[in-house]
């Protein structure tokens, strides 16, 4: 009985992950997908890498390439996951979702799954652009350690995305909030600024954000450090992602219970 229930929950997770991705992810047409997940990050990378290397020399190109490639995880994790959670409100499917007996945690986490894969593709594409355009050398990197870093980082940014998606259930202007969060990550995560040069209060903020340790870890791995050396960073990055995901889930449950009490399920 327990095994059957577990099997069904796994089915709900994967079926929900795939179908909600197709059903709710509004970038899912070839042209928008390419523009948002490939060309937009490319222009961002060109902008920061060219400015950075102009200011600090071409030997620092790897710093900006890796930082901006990892920012793709945030693009997919925050914007994509928000669409998949908040989309139920826009499509009017929330009453049918909350009127169904499905396990809420399975439904909730399933919404992030495909975006984690998407984020990984985005990061790898970013690294590929770095190799093609700026001749970044990845030969010293342990590929599995790098993949693990990318996976953990996309997970952690998707955790933040799950929280943002729940905010999307209670506000109309979630994209404004998302843009702000994205730019906070751009500044505070160390993607384009050396954290050591930041004022102390900014370093404190960086410590509580996803992406910060993922970017640091990726730079270390590409520089030839081993997985063991970056493992503490990855564990912390995973922990931060989990914290935001659980916070998002709590908000999701709070939203469901409060909406049923107040009658605000379909009210913005």
């Amino acid at each position: 009985m327990i095994m059957e229930k577990l099997k069904l929950n796994i089915k709900i997770f994967f079926e929900g992950a795939y179908l909600s991705y197709v059903g709710l992810f509004r970038w899912l047409s070839p042209s928008t997908y390419l523009a948002t997940l490939i060309f937009s990050p490319l222009t961002q990378m060109l902008f920061f890498v060219l400015i950075g290397t102009y200011a600090q020399g071409t030997d620092k190109a790897y710093f900006y390439v890796i930082g901006n490639a990892l920012m793709n995880a945030a693009m997919s994790g925050i914007y994509g996951v928000t669409m998949s959670i908040g989309g139920d409100r826009w499509d009017g499917t929330l009453p049918y979702l909350f009127g169904a007996p499905a396990n809420r945690m399975t439904v909730f986490l399933g919404r992030a799954f495909m975006h984690i894969l998407n984020g990984m593709i985005g990061v790898l594409t970013g690294l590929l652009w770095g190799w093609l355009l700026f001749h970044i050398d990845y030969s010293a990197a342990n590929p599995w350690a790098l993949l693990l870093t990318i996976l953990v980082t996309t997970f952690s940014t998707s955790g933040l995305g799950l929280l943002m998606g729940c905010i999307g259930l209670i506000t109309r202007n979630v994209m404004f909030v998302n843009n702000t969060v994205y730019f906070v990550l751009l500044v505070f995560s160390g993607a384009n600024l050396d954290l050591a040069t930041l004022p102390s209060w900014m370093r404190i903020v960086s410590n509580y954000l996803p992406l910060t340790r993922g970017i640091a870890s990726a730079r270390l791995i590409i520089a030839g450090h081993s997985l063991t050396e970056v493992l503490p960073l990855l564990i912390e990055e995973f922990g931060i992602g989990l914290f935001f995901a659980l916070l998002g889930y709590s908000l999701f449950r709070w939203f469901e219970i409060t909406a049923k009490k107040r009658g605000t399920l379909e009210v913005f």
Binding site: I12, S20, L24, D91, T93, A100, P101, A102
Partner: peptide, 29 residues
């Protein structure tokens, strides 16, 4: 249950996939 009106379905999915998704939400084998 159904509520009147057009909303409440995943418009980007076809009918079969809509039903597949809701079937999983109801733990249908």
């Amino acid at each position: 249950f159904i509520f009147g009106g057009e909303r409440g379905l995943y418009w980007r999915l076809n009918a079969t996939d809509n039903l597949r998704y809701f079937a999983s939400l109801y733990y249908l084998d």
